[in-house]
Computed example of a mutant assay.
Amino acid sequence: MIDVVEIQKILPHRHPFLLVDRITELTQGEFVKGYKNVTIGEPIFQGHFPGHPIYPGVMIIEGMAQAGGILAFKSMDEAGQEETKDKVVYFMSIDKAKFRSPVKPGDTLVYELQVLKHKGAVWVLDGKAFVDGKLVAQAELKAMIVDK
């Protein structure tokens, strides 16, 4: 398990844009599972939408990407590759994105990402997001680890 304090040592993101609360499973170079608790206190709900709060799909995709970044960095660390503290993950593409059900305050988003391909600094991940075991969003994410 990786808690939020350890996540902040891995990712450069900070509140209000750190979108992963905890990693519960991680298999180096293969799979990561983590979650985010969605609360009404999130600044995004001030405008999306007043009186009808819906967590934006783009934020779900970003949360998946952050979980994938943790997987990539931890995989590099474990493999004894380059130093990761001076690296950052950049999106290259988001493909096949689908949003299946709205996410609301009080939901726990569970992110599951499977490595489809990894070559050098490039990672291709199959990302899925669930609430209460129900698929709410999915996308294929391609990212590259680069120097800051």
Rank of each mutant, 00 (worst) to 15 (best):
K104W: 07
E82L: 10
K117Q: 14
G41V: 04
L125E: 02
F91M: 15
M144R: 02
L109P: 05
T108H: 10
F99K: 02
G57C: 13
V146W: 09
K117N: 12
L116R: 08
D77S: 14
G29R: 13
L141N: 06
K98F: 07
E140W: 04
E6S: 12
K142L: 00
V131M: 10
F73D: 02
G63S: 04
Y90H: 07
L18W: 04
Y90T: 07
D132F: 11
N37A: 11
K104R: 14
G69S: 04
G133N: 13
L71C: 07
A79F: 10
L26T: 03
V5N: 14
I2A: 01
K85D: 13
A79I: 10
G57M: 06
F99Q: 01
M64W: 10
G69F: 07
L116W: 13
W123Y: 09
I70R: 02
F99T: 04
Q28G: 13
A65R: 06
V58A: 12
M1G: 08
I70C: 04
F17H: 05
A65L: 11
K128E: 05
L113I: 04
K134V: 07
L11S: 03
V89I: 13
G34I: 06
K104Y: 06
K98C: 05
A129P: 10
H52N: 03
F49T: 12
K104L: 12
E112H: 08
M64E: 11
A137K: 07
V136R: 01
V146Y: 11
L18D: 04
L18R: 03
W123H: 00
